[in-house]
Amino acid sequence: MSEIRKSWGLHIGVVSLLLALNFILPDYHHGNLARVMVLACYAMGYNILFGYTGLLSLGHALFFAAGMYGMSLTVQHLGWSAGPAIIVGLASGLAMSLIVGILSLRTAGVAFMIVTLMFAQAGYLAALYFGEYTRGDEGFVIQKAARQIGGIDLSDPMNRYLAALVLFAVCLFITLRVVQTGFGRVLVAIRENEERTRMLGYDVHRHKLLAILLSGTMSAAAGASYGLLFGYAGATFASVQYSIFPLLWVLLGGAGTVLGPFVGTLFMFYLIDLSSDISTAYMLIAGLTLVLLTLFAPQGLVGELRRRTLRWLP
């Protein structure tokens, strides 16, 4: 019981700290942190499937883009306001993860990686193919006037930050809650030993499907919010690269930890940002850091922390 209380305390503390930072941070880091929080939701969504359920998808950009396009296309072409458009974004993510889930769960392991990769690639190409509506790779701007919910202007830095924080807190607490319930434990059991979980009488397939739905919808929420908060939607976000990013962030921060995705996203952002100040060869520095991390912190940053000291970390 105390461990559960400790972990709620920690995560509420993190959210409070982020709230406090809203008032302290200089402009540049304030803007960055808002972005990192939104992308961390994408990583958290990814973590539910990869970190807890053990399913490695290479196609999550499809869900991120489904959210982004679901939201932005309704704003752009149907003239909807941001609130309902976000719902459309979430619904697209849910529908997309349902289709991908039903089909791809017939496979496992490496075949699952490829099937998700292929679906995402088809989604990326479709965004280009329907260029008349999406403007393809070039993308389009979501005009400032449309980026309002209930009269709150989301292009204002403070509002943007707080909106990102709300989304982040919701995703964080959902993840925390999930890992503390029976559902989350079954997911971990599937990751550790699928056969045994099945023999214990759990419906493995149904749990996996639910994990994909949750994971995909959370990723879509991140995509829709990203478009809304930063005013742009484009096919780049549907490309393979953006499927690899959450994997990288999660592995860096610690797969199967609640805070890992956020820590990984933050770490990767500042790694690129700071090393590009030092030298134009920032990719070299980033690459070396990744290699060193795998050598010396194999479980990711938070995972390593859990292994060494804080064993109760969720």
Binding site: I244, L251, A281, M283, L284, G287, L288, L290, V291, P298
Partner: peptide, 23 residues
Amino acid sequence: RIEYDPERTIVATIGLLYIIQQV
């Protein structure tokens, strides 16, 4: 050194990819 651990290998080879491209 990472004992060919599947997940760590992915991160390590992504790092390698960055290094080779930048060089």
